Amino acid sequence: MDPLLHLDRTLDDLDPPRWEAVPANATRLVRTVHGLRRVPLGELRPADLRTLLAQQVALPFVLPLAVRLLAEEPLLDAYFYEGDLLLATVTAPEGAWAALPELEARLRTIVAGLPGAAVKELPRGSDTDLARFIARG
């Protein structure tokens, strides 16, 4: 299923089972992620995608959305710093990419094309994460 064809649907619709109601004592992050599962895919912002990626939620649906944005702006500042969406995407578990080999190859090409100077501006260790992602291919 191509998630980009379902931009009007939510992760709760596409990634069963629907999550239970948020517990009363839930952290802010848990409340945020629960809420994001109820937002139509087409309305998820870059920061939302970064959060879902970091929490490894519904990756088969979130990764294509992130790569689509990264193809346009690889070092997009989603919330914390320039390149944070990219780093959240390349550090997704290797198994999450198993059903998305073309998408992984596309992102690998994007990462390989980043200027060295831009990579040096990313947080410490980012160059290792990027190199590890490229080497998996």
Rank of each mutant, 00 (worst) to 15 (best):
P3I: 08
L4R: 11
L5H: 13
H6G: 06
L7V: 11
R9D: 15
T10W: 13
D12W: 13
D15G: 10
D15P: 11
P16T: 10
P16S: 06
P17H: 02
E20L: 11
A21F: 03
V22A: 14
V22H: 04
P23V: 05
A26H: 00
T27K: 04
L29I: 07
L29P: 03
V30I: 10
G35H: 08
L36Q: 05
R38L: 04
P40S: 08
L41H: 14
G42S: 08
L44F: 13
R45C: 03
P46T: 02
A47W: 09
A47L: 04
L49H: 07
L52K: 07
L53E: 06
Q56K: 11
Q56Y: 10
A58H: 11
A58D: 08
P60F: 10
F61M: 12
V62N: 12
E73W: 05
P74C: 09
L76S: 05
D77T: 13
D77C: 15
A78H: 04
G83S: 05
L85I: 11
L85F: 11
L85Q: 14
A88W: 09
T91F: 00
A92W: 12
P93N: 06
G95W: 12
W97F: 05
A98M: 03
A99L: 12
P101Q: 07
E102F: 09
E104N: 06
A105E: 13
A105P: 06
A105S: 14
A105L: 08
R108E: 10
R108S: 04
T109D: 15
I110M: 00
V111L: 01
L114W: 00
G116K: 02
A118C: 04
V119W: 04
K120E: 15
L122A: 01
G125M: 09
G125F: 11
A131R: 15
A131T: 07
I134E: 00
R136H: 15
